[in-house]
Design a protein around this nucleic acid. Sequence first.
DNA 1: GAACTTATGTCGGTGC
DNA 2: GCACCGACATAAGTTC
Lengths: 93, 93, 93, 93
Amino acid sequence: MSEIGHNSATADQAETGANERLRLLVERVERLEEEKQDIADDIRAVYGEAKAVGFDPKIMRQVIRLRKMKPEDRVYQQQVLATYANALGLDLL
Amino acid sequence: MSEIGHNSATADQAETGANERLRLLVERVERLEEEKQDIADDIRAVYGEAKAVGFDPKIMRQVIRLRKMKPEDRVYQQQVLATYANALGLDLL
Amino acid sequence: MSEIGHNSATADQAETGANERLRLLVERVERLEEEKQDIADDIRAVYGEAKAVGFDPKIMRQVIRLRKMKPEDRVYQQQVLATYANALGLDLL
Amino acid sequence: MSEIGHNSATADQAETGANERLRLLVERVERLEEEKQDIADDIRAVYGEAKAVGFDPKIMRQVIRLRKMKPEDRVYQQQVLATYANALGLDLL
DNA sequence: GAACTTATGTCGGTGC
DNA sequence: GCACCGACATAAGTTC
């Protein structure tokens, strides 16, 4: 028996199969997370550039978030927000 | 010796003192977190009420975030945001 | 007419009612969030104390999370974690 | 004058240059974020697969986090955690 | 110490 | 009806 006596040969095989499957899944995730991290680094670098030429990264993120929204949703949100702000005497713009 | 022979009596006492101190700190944190959770529940309940009478909780959160900002910061942000949006042909309002 | 001519009196009243309701809800949330923040500050202070007498706040948080779990869940998690770690040749303890 | 009379030609040009630069930066970020999102989707899919064959995604994440740590850090953390748990009468394993 | 990212919990929607 | 799924919100950790 390959592993010292605690299980049957078939149980060992099943366990090994499961272990192997888990290992493969974990390694796939890890590989993908590495790629993801590389891209995150690239993004950070672009914001670095932007900041270096005088743009405000934080506001850039806001604009990008707005651009990502569906126009209809954006309009709706802006309108309701304006309404609420108005109701509370908060001056936007 | 109170605990079976592995340490001197004084070492045991020091350890017990440290354990006790840790326990007290942990319990204080836990008590505070309970209170914090209760309040979080209350907040959630208020949003529930708001929703029930037709207000949009998500937008309410936005307004509250804006109200929390210092007016100067809010104005600055809104202005820069408007500038960037304009530069990108994104129509706000 | 109380507000310069853009709506009927009854519409103005309805609007005012809604505004008022919104304002009350928002203020309730804000008050609760203040309390919540105060407690968060207290918690931070306790961790500060703990750190000052040599405890590691990060690990304290881990212990507190474990203590919050139902014993059965904790045991289950630890067991499965041990199994997975083992399957991957990661030595715990 | 290209834009109706509010600025000098040179000012317009400078503005246009800045707008263009901003647009390019924003588009680079957006492209990268798309890629990042695609990868995030892939990761989610892998966890989906894992779950489908009986693995617990949450625990998988824990293992992956542990694998990412430097061995020395992992050992230190585990030891301190064990110490604190013990001090509080919390039984691990 | 501030901001971004990740992880976790919760909730509303949808499929079986 | 229950359970999965995506969205949202919060909390924690990490980084600059």
